[in-house]
Design a protein around this nucleic acid. Structure first.
Lengths: 235, 235
DNA sequence: CCAAAAGTGTTCATTCTACACCCATGG
DNA sequence: CCATGGGTGTAGAATGAACACTTTTGG
């Protein structure tokens, strides 16, 4: 692309247009899962410099012919083996010196998975994969702590307003008190059981099943499911 | 950057790393202003192809050594002559074919200005600058209608929850009913005057002045101002 | 006096919060 | 029977919605 061509397109710069086409784009995913009362985030340990040995968010560069959401979905699927993951773009970070390889602008995504489902596997550039409780995230590579914080802020807001995202971390059939536990853990505060139940059951996307818990040594809890069709109508 | 060097950094791709550094980044700003009861958005008319003659959001390519917010602020300042503009990154768009010049990923920003302050000026690549009522936005160039919609969604949410952003479009001293009018226009519905007052005055960042309106042929309204310090404490 | 917009008070309905209580199961 | 968690009811406070009313100015 010559400068003349660029001008025909409506640009008029003092530096050649090519200079602008030097960026790389990456996606970094904050993958949340719920396991035994705790919400955790999947991190990978970097196997090479920069930040060798540091934990980082899983991510990758976006291919030149790849859509942004597509790239995020690729990372998620490769890492977890799951399709159909809830995923949302949260914020874009692009400090000039955030990456040592060159100018890399990264899109932070938040993803929620049913943790028990996914077969953990280390990737090519990761030595190790681990799950960390969201309240005990270590120092991460690059600006990943900031990306994590933004995503957590969003997750908290969603749970506080009872918008139907937390369910993406639960199994298809779940009890209301499991979900209460998840919410309490993320928000880091106790909630009233009775009021929480009422609030949830008032939402019409949550539907009771005829089934109950098995093998518990107390009164078995009723199981519920999410009706995704009703969710889509709301938005 | 050679492939070997890239591998040292922890990347291992089948295509050379350079291939990834082909993107350009741009920022597109949805600039809102309030004038005579109506909220409007600033658009520029494109002077060249593609989309010659179409209205578009003001924006620009990000320079290789420039931070993202910095680029957005540059666009805003160049266009309006104002410093200190409220500005917020909203969403990033990057469909593969969204731009004819090459792969350009764009960050949508929302900005709010005190409209009466700014001296309108057409830019190099714009034939014309115009303000359009937010409920009558024409077909825009690129994916700019989508960027606009995202920003409007955010603005509506902010106003509904009475978070202190709409004030950025008002003069330093304003009446509560002016602000009511602004809110009604954006949300496109009538609100109860009395309840709106109570709600607003309950927020502690809004403070009454000793001053009142002048030259009106009815009971003059009290003027209020925003205490920015209190806003920062909240967030 | 009147017109016009500013500003207040009251009522009723809805939602939130706290907390006490009952229920079903395994052992 | 008890322990354990599941599940319900209710009273009082806080908030929201609707609407009638009073106040202050210019003319």
């Amino acid at each position: 692309m010559t400068r003349k061509a660029a001008e025909d397109y409506g640009y008029d710069y003092n530096i050649p247009l090519d200079e602008f086409f030097q960026f790389a784009i990456s996606v970094d995913c904050v993958i949340y899962g719920y396991h035994e009362g705790k919400v955790k985030v999947m991190l990978i340990k970097r196997g090479a410099d920069p930040y060798k040995g540091k934990w980082a968010l899983p991510g990758d560069l976006v291919y030149p012919k790849e859509a942004l959401d597509e790239a995020a979905r690729r990372v998620l699927t490769e890492l977890t083996g799951l399709e159909e993951i809830y995923m949302k773009q949260v914020h874009t970070f692009g400090a000039v010196d955030r990456h040592t390889l060159g100018r890399v602008v990264t899109l932070g995504y938040m993803a929620l998975i049913e943790m028990y489902k996914h077969p953990l596997k280390a990737d090519g550039w990761a030595e190790e994969v681990g799950w960390f409780e969201i309240h005990e995230i270590p120092d991460l590579a690059f600006d990943h702590n900031e990306i994590f914080s933004e995503s957590l802020k969003f997750l908290k807001q969603s749970l506080e307003s009872h918008s139907p995202v937390g369910f993406e971390m639960m199994p298809k059939k779940f009890t209301l008190l499991d979900y209460l536990e998840l919410t309490e853990y993320v928000l880091n505060k106790r909630l009233d059981k009775a009021n929480f139940r009422k609030k949830l059951l008032a939402q019409d996307f949550i539907e009771p099943l005829e089934e109950v818990q098995k093998n518990v040594k107390h009164r078995p809890a009723k199981l519920y499911k999410i009706n995704k069709k009703k969710i889509e109508l709301e938005t």
